[in-house]
Design a binder for these strands. Structure first.
Lengths: 225, 225, 225, 225
DNA sequence: AATGAATGAGTATTCATTCAT
DNA sequence: GATGAATGAATACTCATTCAT
């Protein structure tokens, strides 16, 4: 059996390579997950590498095997969060049917939910971006734009379908994203008074209120309240 | 001569007191202004007290006569910025006439302008708030709310006047504030494509588009595009 | 009196300046002296800044006010040693009379004596030079050359006076310096069997034996043994 | 087959032993050669075991199978260099004929040549000796003495032969060694001005000038210039 | 009021060494 | 024999804060 396993077409070296890649990836994840937890408690600047090592249950030295330094951990953390956004948003919108307005609404709701599940991570994105090198910042910006792409597409679809008038797709998408982020950025203001569902419904009402062309309004009455 | 100066009607102690208050205030301002400049360059955490002292042209020790410590300088800086917002917003709205919708629009435009004049300071507010003590954070929150009060009042007036339907005043005010802040927070995205005027106009169109009741719409055609 | 002192042509600022310069210089000396002691015990690389601070009876931070870093302390130490050489060699030779051969002999003896008084410092010069930046190394080389200048001059004088034949002044000076340094570099070999005086006498005999022209030899019989 | 291999006359264990000894020796050499190369580039303290492993094309762990630790590598390196000196010096002198003065001169020339071929290794000997344990240092000292033995013997022979007067053999040998080392230690001073041959000739002239008794001088005119 | 010399705790990073595989 | 992942102690350097003058 062992011999057989070693004589597949990829060969033993390839297998070892793969095993190693998995281990590297899992170690990185282990450290990044710990980093999110520590930064939620203390912020990036207050996080000592020792504290991170303790939280991740590894030695300080090992962190430097997987990351170039503290800032690289920060970049990895933020990128990880944004990746998670991207991975979660599209499926939710895919399950919302064909109507582009409904898709946009479902996307927005999901976006806010994901924000709610990653409150501190979102705040982190705003707080610590400037700490990154220009290259790191550029990467973050790209990711943020591509994260919102499904929302942008749905909105463009709604305009093509005639349900929404001619508006600046980019601006509206950005506004939607900002208002989703606001749930995290200003939760000290909203959270005591608003439930997540109410917040989404109210914001969607405001967003769509000025966009939906009057003759299509009845069909979206459940969104426009 | 010295004796004469000390025999004015308010009494020498009072004069000294006043002189001292002015000097204290001017020294504080001198240091806070320097702090804004340094933080714009380097961020709060990178700013050393020595660098602040150099920029403010005073000695390190003197900073500790006027502030409790580094964090107190940060609090003072943020409060100073929010104070400036408050001082500048109300006059601008007062000069916009009686129509509450026009006042709101004028207020929003001015708000974005002030953001534009204090880009780094606004970002600072988001980046460094968590560095503050809970007491400091609470103070900031209050100030942020009271800063937006004129906008809130105008919107409430518009509803009372029947120009705007029944909406959640607080939410809309917050959205407006967020979108104004977004000009600073996301300027890497907007600034290359949008002028300040276009940004204000487009955002106002979206905000008001869903709010103005149809029969009043013609009167605000210049705002709704 | 005080007033008078303050109204000399240099003025109070200049006085303060001078006071400060003295303090800076004394602090530097205090730290450099400690550095020599610690490096003698442990070598440069083993010397921790904390250990240096303890030895110098100052705080770690203060060292960084007076030196750019650890390597700067090393440079300062070596330069200090070479300066001491220069300050001590010339007076000794000046007191040795007019005969250039006698001057050379006296200079060599003094050189070895100074080496003997700074055994570890000399070794340090050989051991740690490479640790320095190119600029630092260049400075050391210059100093080493100028340190040996009095010996070189005496030898050149001896040649002009006809007491010594035409030899390469530079080479002989360098050899003399090397053999003086050898007293420190190889003291594990010499020190048990040779006294300082015997070592000097023997080396001088070898050095001068081949140099002095035969007809002058009688005059220097006490040197040639 | 395996059984056959195990029944040679020396016995299987002995063969394995021999094979192992060769391999051990070759691995040691592989690592030591790499160590010389790395230390020439960076010095001992800057050399990380990882860098050494990379240069030697082995894993870090393997180094610890052949050496007790980093310092043991250093000791091995220095010993290796001194061994090489010993192995190379004697043959060169053997080929120089029977005249002891000629042998001494040939030995000195060869010594400087070997120094020239191992410039950094020689400097290493001076720089890093103190890093060793007392036991290691003692070993180095012994080796250095035995390395110079052929020179010492030739000089003693020259005295016995009456070509050189009664001088301290040990001191002269040491001086010769120092001046050979100086070619490495002070190459920044000599190398731009002197060729290796000129340096050897000039130093030999100085060394022998005071030693050769006048009546033998004509025979060594080619050495005394 | 004002200075700036002095402190020393805090921290990112490196690297010799070990050991499970 | 050979690997290299993992460890964690060691250390140069920074900087907020104090205090004698």
């Amino acid at each position: 059996m062992e011999a057989m396993a070693r004589t597949t077409e990829t060969g033993p070296a390839a297998v070892d390579e793969a095993v190693r890649a998995v281990r590297v990836s899992s170690r990185r994840r282990q450290i990044l997950d710990a980093a999110v937890r520590v930064m939620q408690r203390t912020g990036f600047h207050q996080m000592s590498m020792q504290a991170l090592a303790d939280e991740a249950q590894v030695s300080v030295g090992l962190i430097y095997k997987y990351f170039g330094g503290k800032e690289d951990v920060l970049l990895g953390t933020i990128v990880g969060i944004l990746d998670a956004f991207q991975d979660m948003l599209e499926p939710a919108m895919a399950g919302a049917g064909d109507d582009p307005v409904e898709r946009f609404a479902a996307g927005f709701r999901r976006y806010v939910e994901i924000v709610d599940e990653n409150l501190d991570a979102v705040v982190l994105t705003y707080r610590e971006s400037r700490t990154l090198t220009p290259a790191g910042r550029a990467r973050i910006k790209e990711l943020e734009i591509s994260t919102a792409a499904p929302l942008r597409d749905a909105l463009a679809g709604a305009i093509r379908a005639g349900a929404v008038g001619e508006v600046d797709v980019d601006l509206v998408t950005f506004d939607a994203m900002m208002l989703a982020h606001a749930w995290a950025l200003k939760r000290w203001h909203f959270s005591p008074r608003w439930s997540l569902g109410d917040y989404c419904a109210a914001q969607l009402r405001l967003l769509l209120g000025g966009l939906i062309v009057p003759e299509h309004a009845p069909r979206y009455a459940h969104l426009l309240g």
